[in-house]
Design a protein around this nucleic acid. Structure first.
Lengths: 204, 204
DNA sequence: AAAATTACTGAACACTGTTCATTTTGTCAA
DNA sequence: TTGACAAAATGAACAGTGTTCAGTAATTTT
């Protein structure tokens, strides 16, 4: 009964074909330009065919969002070599902001756009997001273990920290940082994060 | 030569007619459902007419965004009675988050959606946004004057604080708070803000 | 080879923003 | 009041969008 296996394999190959096309369009024109008809054109199938492999466009964007997370996760790992927990947390924030500024399209897909969010909802279906959150959480737990942020809760603190860096990146990406002159944008954005974290009760 | 005046007045009346229709649709179905054709239908004019009064759809959304800011600003004023600057800042944050959770559609229009952002860009053209920022800035200046956040810059601190609350609200609205069980959502969101601010070097 | 199953198509539906040649309406001097 | 000009409004057309589904083509099973 190798036929079923082949069929399954062919199905996966077709899904990959669709996703690869979506990825190409996304890289070349931005994810917002990824349309069903454009993908169909690219892979030389009819638009209807795509719906035999994906529930809808959002499901395809969800997969692109997962790929973006993989790239993001790799970037995050660059902080692993730092031993001092608080220094690591600071670098973590910098890496996060830098990723957002350097990859606006991927960042939107991961954290701003509605589309893949409808495929998320629960923690079970948002593996990539949870993995990233866990990474931050463990960093903050190390800080707590080292005596920083006395009396605070890991989870709450993690969400606060994440919200801070996300707020910085997303306000910038959505053009709500009009009060900052363009030439000072980058230093101000990184500075906002550092000012906040430096004002924390970070003494052991 | 009263004709020119009448013409100008009629032009303003027509703009209001369009905006009122846009507002109605926005309230009833959400701003994302505000389409040129739907407005045209509502006011019993052809779609093309709308373009004689507004450059494009974004300009209409920008006006709705301004109205949202007016409501937001009124809400913010509720903290004015608090004298102690740090307590006021805390309440300011709570009011901000509450507004976002209670008015998701307005919040999106003000701070998340791309559309009105293209009409913003510079501080000159984003009056409403700047007004709100100034309000926060003055609150933080009061904190600095009272000895809080020693050695920090007002502007940078304001941006950091704003980013924190915006991050909390926008991650929630865009369904990226999957790690928080729904029943604890509200307390966790407010808690994230309070944990962060309580961890600040807020002693005089 | 015929029947049954699976895969694919592409037209159709219901939308979207925006433009522009054409028509209608309003103003004003003769 | 009529003709000329200007201003205002129209609505079809362009170029898209996601999604569905009756019908056709290809493959597999009997």
């Amino acid at each position: 009964m190798g036929i079923k296996q082949r069929k399954d394999r062919e199905r996966e190959e077709m899904k990959d074909l669709i996703l690869d096309a979506a990825k190409r369009i996304s890289i070349e024109e931005g994810f917002s330009k990824v349309s069903i008809r454009k993908i169909a054109e690219e892979i030389e199938y009819s638009p209807g065919t795509i719906y035999l492999y994906f529930k809808n466009r959002d499901e395809i964007l969800f997969e692109l969002h997962n790929l973006a997370f993989q790239k993001f996760y790799k970037e995050q790992l660059k902080i692993s070599h730092i031993n001092e927990p608080f220094e690591k947390l600071k670098e973590h924030g910098r890496v996060y902001i830098k990723f957002g500024l350097d990859n606006p399209d991927l960042y939107e897909l991961m954290f701003i756009v509605q589309a893949p969010g409808n495929e998320i909802e629960t923690s079970q279906s948002w593996n990539e997001g949870m993995k990233t959150f866990e990474f931050l959480r463990s960093n903050i737990q190390e800080c707590l273990d080292a005596g920083y942020f006395k009396g605070s809760d890991v989870n709450t603190l993690s969400i606060a920290m994440w919200s801070l860096v996300h707020g910085i990146v997303s306000l910038y990406l959505r053009k709500r940082m009009a009060m900052v002159p363009k030439e000072f944008m980058k230093p101000v954005l990184f500075g906002a994060f550092e000012t906040m974290i430096d004002n924390l009760n970070n003494k052991k």
